[in-house]
Amino acid sequence: MQAEAKRLSPSIVLLLSAALALASVLAFMTLGAKGSWSFILSFRGAKLAGMVLVAYAIAVSTVLFQTISGNRILTPSIIGFDAMYALLQTIAVFFLGAAGAVAVDPRLQFVVETIAMVGFSLLLFRALFSGASRSLHLLMLVGVILGGLFRSLSSFLQRILDPNDFVVLQDRLFASFNTVDANLLGIATVSTVAVTFALWRLSPTFDVLSLGREAAIGLGVDHQRVVTFLLVLIAILVSVSTALVGPVTFFGLLVASLAWQLTPTASHRFVLPVAVCIAITTLVGGQVILERLLSFNTALSIVIEFFGGLVFIFLLVRGSAR
């Protein structure tokens, strides 16, 4: 009974995380602003939009992926989405050369990559579900194996690549929140809004899906159709975030774990927005600390991993004390 008294209400957690997200956005836009506001707003605004999109895409895709897999440690990267992205980039540089790959319109590249990633997830899913066994865990395992295959193929191609091309490729494969590709913002926003609309239509099923396949079917959810559709939407969101900043994996896990832990209910109505707010706070707030306190001396991914590690230790200690 004591535990009940201590629990915050879900709305308060949501409000607090939204306030934090808003505070970091404001800090990012205003701190250390010198000179013309119109320049600052447009320069920082584009960067901010990119980061918010990435935060949203990663938070939502990871939480939903964990819901349909019934596992709180899995992220989309486990079924090879990130490795697939790296392979696509490698193939592009390998066959087009560094100059050719740079010359390709990034929007075209985004569309091709997204289609490839959606096709990959559909193929994986169809192949497994048409067979006798229909286990999500098998899907995960096949994804892990395929991810390994993609990684090996990428590293093989990278080994025989021209060193100059390799430098260009390496630059593309490192996650960087500082160099958000502004050309892609428009198409990434449109994709994200479209995905969000589709997710909105599916949203009543999320909580039911977290009960597991059989309970969901028992309650009348067309499990196979909904899960297939969700995987496609997740693939698009992963494409958005990887296209904008490159592969970031640990971030999704961190944000989703925090959201599940901090939200006193398992209802997606609260967990999803809380996860998005935490993601924005971490990414944008982290960027502020990076730019203003550390004057660009380190990479944001290091900051995120540092705070992520602290929070994980805190959660572990608190969990064992309870």
Binding site: R72, S210, L211, A215, G218, G220, A266
Partner: peptide
């Protein structure tokens, strides 16, 4: 079913409420 493993942290009331999903779709 006999094995009811749920990863989500649900209260009894939350769980029972799921029984109404076929009628109200979560609202």
């Amino acid at each position: 079913r006999q094995d009811n493993h749920i990863t989500a942290r649900l209260s009894v009331r939350d769980l029972v409420a799921f029984g109404r999903y076929p009628y109200s779709k979560g609202r």
